Computed example of a mutant assay.
Amino acid sequence: MADVAAKAGVSRALVSIVFRGQPGAGEETRERVLRVADEIGYRPDNAAQLLARGRSRTLGVMVTVHQSFQADLVEAIYPEADRLGYEVLLSANAPGRDEARAVEALLGHRCEAVILLGPDAPVADLDALGHRTATVAVGRRVPGARVDSVHTSEGKGVRQVMEHLVELGHRRIVHVDGGRGPGSAERRRAYRAAMRRHGLTSELCVIPGEHTEDSGIETGRRLLAERNAGRSLPTAILAGNDRCAMGLLMTFARAGVDVPGEVSVVGYDDSHLSHLMPVGLTTVRQDAVLMAEHAVRFAMERLDNGELDPREVALEPKLVVRGTSGPVRRD
């Protein structure tokens, strides 16, 4: 700023006024200062200015690498944060870099609040974080923690899937769960409850898995091996999420299994992946835009009033029927 002031022939204080957009400088002087700044390549350090006032105006977001639905959430968070005058800083949870390290990086960069996408940390750890800074968990319930949460009603989503499959005549419906992934426990419970409700307890089968394509591929290979050993394939599979469903579809396609003629496959999330196939994936839609808007709003409201009780919102899911589910084949 001193260099700009010297070359423009004005005081440093006047340069500061121009860059802060405050009154006190004539139009000709303002234009000269901005022109000189452009010539010498000066840009105001907004982060330093905010920190000098005790604010960073930065919202930290923890994201898991390769989770496509979380990418959709991040895309939706940016415009909402921008609308409220906040920048977004991302920190990834990845192999070799756990959630705690990802969150500490955000706090180290002085983020005013953090939004955790699909956290799987213990409730006690999330509660401790919530006492340190404004925290919102997306995709997971955290009862008992000082953390706001935004998620889809997992039970309703699974019930919609099960009603759809049962109406199509399916009885041998298998669920590949998502392990410790966000929403997995609720989806697993809802699947079991739906199978019992429809009188299908004897057909109930939960296959341990993860929210990854590899999990779907492994499950597909396991089911094909069982078929080769004389056991027929299930007629329908509810995957833990869209990525897992994609792995199943890849394995079945390579083995020549007809989907949905021989096996119906349903995912969960309605991430952008579900549209990137010759045959669209039947899945449960989670509204990424609405989830992002709620998460950002919760973070801002907690910054304004840190004494608020923890809040939770469960959004409505919607079954989206595409080409991977169909009626049971009658031989």
Rank of each mutant, 00 (worst) to 15 (best):
T133V: 14
V136R: 08
V138Y: 12
V138E: 07
G139K: 09
G139H: 12
R140V: 09
P143V: 03
P143G: 07
G144I: 03
G144R: 03
G144F: 01
R146W: 07
V147P: 09
D148M: 15
S149R: 08
S149V: 12
S149C: 13
V150T: 15
T152H: 06
S153G: 14
G155P: 09
K156S: 13
R159H: 15
V161G: 02
E163K: 07
E163T: 11
H164N: 06
V166E: 08
E167G: 14
L168D: 07
G169Q: 07
G169L: 05
G169T: 02
H170A: 08
H170R: 07
R171G: 15
R172L: 03
I173P: 02
V174H: 02
V174F: 04
V174W: 02
H175K: 00
V176Y: 05
D177P: 05
G178Y: 12
G178D: 12
G183L: 10
S184A: 14
S184W: 03
R187A: 04
R187G: 04
R189H: 08
A190V: 01
A190Q: 03
R192L: 13
R192K: 14
M195N: 02
M195G: 03
M195S: 02
M195C: 03
R196K: 11
R197W: 07
H198G: 04
H198P: 04
H198S: 06
G199E: 00
G199N: 03
L200R: 05
L200A: 06
T201Q: 06
T201P: 00
S202F: 07
S202G: 08
